[in-house]
Structures are given as C-alpha cells and as structure tokens.
Design a protein around this nucleic acid. Structure first.
Lengths: 208, 208
DNA sequence: TGTACATCAGTGAACGCGCGTTCACTGATGTAC
DNA sequence: TGTACATCAGTGAACGCGCGTTCACTGATGTAC
C-alpha cells in the first residue's frame, strides 16, 4: 500500500493562504454562482447582499467578488442561468425513460408538491422570483424568457396525442397554472389552504 | 347669480402655506396610499423610496411622511389593502347584473388581457408583486392572503352549475392559471409570445 | 530538477450613495374665550 | 362675531446604516530559465 501526499495545508484561524490554485479559483467561482442562485430564490435579489453571499460561499470578505464577476448584475445573470439549467435538468432526469403520459403527470406532480413549495433554494426560478424577473436587466431577462420557453417545450413534448401547435398551447396554459399555483401556495397563511391550492390545480390540469 | 368665495389661496414658487386643513390632510394621506399602491406594483416595494413617493404625491419633501404613517411597512400594508379592494371592486362592477356564465368569462377575459398586463399601476397585486408578497411582514401577508381568498370566492360564485366545494376547487386552479399567465406574459421578450400566453391560458380555462 | 520572479485570488478597509427615519422649525388652521 | 393662542401638516436638513464597488496589500501559485 502506498500513499502519495500531494498537498498538506494547515489552515489556522486567521487568513493564511493567499493566492489559490486555478482549480480552487474555479471552485470558488462555481460556489458563488450556486450559492447566489439559491439565496436569490430564497430571499429575493435586491434583498441578498454581496457580503452575505461571499461569506456563505466560504470567503472571509466581500472584496474578492470582483476577481470573479464584473458586477452584481453579471452574477444575477449567471445565477439565473444556472438555476434554470439545474431545474430543467432535474425535470428531464425525473422522466427519463417514462412514457409521455406518465412523464407529464410526474412533471406536474413534482412541481405542484409541498416539497417544491417549501424548498425555495432549489425551486423553479419562475415561481420563486416570478414578478421580480421582469425588472432585471435585458440579458437576465432573456435568460429567464429562454428558461420559460424550454420549460413549455419540455411539457409539450409529453403530449404526443395532440398536434405540436395544440401541445404548445396547452403546455403554455399548464405552465401558467403551475407557476401561479406555487406562488399562491407560498402566500397562503394556513397549511390546509396552501396544500389545497397545489392539489386543486394538480387535479384541474390532469383532468383537462 | 351669486358666488361665495370660501377661500382664496395664492401659492407661490416656494413653500407658502404650512399647516393644512383636516380635509386637505386626509386628502394628502389618501394620495400617498394610492400613489404607493401604484408605484409598488409598477416598480416593486423595495425599489420604491419614500422620498420619490412623497414627491409623486405632491409633497415637496419626504419629512412629512411620518405625520401620516408610523413606518414604510405600515404604508405597504395600507397600500396593499387598497390595491386589493380596488381591484376586487372593479371586478365586481364589471360583472354587475350579468348571468354567471357570462360573468365568469368577463372576469377571465379582462384579467387575461394585454390591457391588464400593460397597466401595471392598476394591475392585480397578485400578479404584479406575486413572489414578493411572501416576504412582507405578517400583517401585510394576511391582507394579501385575504385578497386571494376573496378573489377565489368571487370566481367560485360564478360557477352555479357545480357544488360549492367543486366550485371553490375549480376557482382556485383558475386563479392560479390567471396569475401565472400574467406573470409569464410580462416576462416574455416578444409581443407575440406574450399575447399567446394570455390567449392560450384564456382558451384553456374557458374550455375546461 | 532547482531557483527567481511575476501573477493574481483573496483580505480588509475605505469610498460614495441612497435608503428609512428623526427633528427643529414654520405659520395657517382650529379652538377657547 | 372678534381676538389670542395652541395645534400640527409640511419643510428641509441631518442622522446612521448597509449597499455595491474600489484599492493597496499579501503571499502561495505558476512560469521562465
């Protein structure tokens, strides 16, 4: 048996190590995007400060932020992009190999679930940030609009019975109901009301 | 013919009149609530400053704000209350005397219209502020949740064919689709896409 | 492979700015006689 | 009804605070020889 010690690093209380390896730098950048993506969805974009974000990403001070991004706006764009790709990726994974009808039901039931409602950090950006998205800069707006289009396309693909035009129209309305229901369920003041918004909308869509 | 001049007031460039009559004071307060209600919906709550709000309400400085309200939060609560009452009042007025089926269609078509989408200052607070509402203080949250409940009840009333329980369930899902569609239509980057979101959702609801 | 030096990720303090809020002041309104 | 005085809506400047952003500095990493 043989061990090769590539690197031994002692990290003390204060700031010891300065410049990081390229690998570590890339990891830090990724960490910031992922953390931002979650925090923005949880607390809102304007309400999430860069200092807080850097601390949550394992940094000790906010100053290093601008070694990775040109501005907060740029991070918002990247975080939004990551959020949509992550969500769409998970949705695609959840229906891999399933038949269209079953796949459609899986997508709707996962989206309209208490779990999705409650796990804001991992939630769909459309429902988590909905009304805020229209006020972001152009580039981020395009990212959000593209995410929405891809989501509609994913839903439409599971409607093999209908023509592609009919499928797109129904998928559009279904996504509207999904997003609205999750937004409203997070607004409800009682658990019963909140759950029933999800359930009523689920049944409405699946019976249509 | 006789004229009775009750009051002649010369308003010059600077600040001339100090203390206002009770009537004027009440008018100022009302103006602030109405202005806030519109600006919050247009630009977001965190993004709308008190100084800006006071200027838009005809005041010269922000200092007088606290003669009317204890805090910005209190104004948010009142503005939200006003916004919901106004919207629900207009909706009820729009279907006065109509038969249920026709009334239902009128509500859906007005809500899912380009006019409603574009006139943010007069829009439904649920679609204008949607995802922001869940982060407001408790009192405002209750106002929003009550507004949502009243909206569902108004929709349910127009479904005389179904049992009251069935009506409530369908109304809940229909409101979800309405709110979601308007949020998404404001996110779309092309007019065609935006209009089709409204149209597709309108047809989906009315065919259900 | 070993040494000398440039690079640059992260630190920590500072910057200007606009926010919500406070306050001394003003003077017409409203009240008491 | 007329006069004297207290009230208080609105003014305008100031407050502390946290924000996004900048910058001189540090020292391990990565590069050149």
């Amino acid at each position: 048996m043989s061990f090769t010690i590539l690197k031994v690093q002692f990290v003390c209380s204060g700031s010891i190590d300065m410049r990081k390896s390229r690998e570590e730098t890339a990891a830090t950048r990724r960490k910031i995007v992922v953390t931002a993506s979650k925090e923005f969805r949880k607390k809102g974009i304007a309400e999430t400060g860069l200092k807080e974000l850097m601390l949550a990403s394992g940094q000790q001070t906010p100053g290093g932020f601008y070694k990775h991004f040109g501005s907060k706006e740029q991070l918002v764009t990247e975080a939004m992009n990551y959020g949509f790709e992550r969500m769409l990726g998970q949705m695609e994974a959840s229906i891999e190999g399933a038949h269209p009808k079953e796949a459609f039901e899986t997508l709707i039931c996962n989206y309209l679930s208490p779990k999705h409602r409650d796990r804001l950090g991992e939630a769909c950006p459309l429902s988590a940030l909905g009304s805020e998205l229209r006020r972001l800069d152009d580039e981020t707006g395009v990212v959000a609009a593209d995410g929405m289009k891809k989501f509609i396309a994913l839903l439409a693909e599971q409607m093999k019975g209908a023509s592609s035009e009919q499928a797109r129209k129904k998928a559009t309305a279904v996504l509207s109901a999904m997003v609205g229901a999750v937004v409203l369920s997070r607004l409800a003041k009682s658990a019963a009301m909140s759950n029933s918004i999800l359930k009523d909308t689920r049944e409405f869509i699946l019976q249509s």
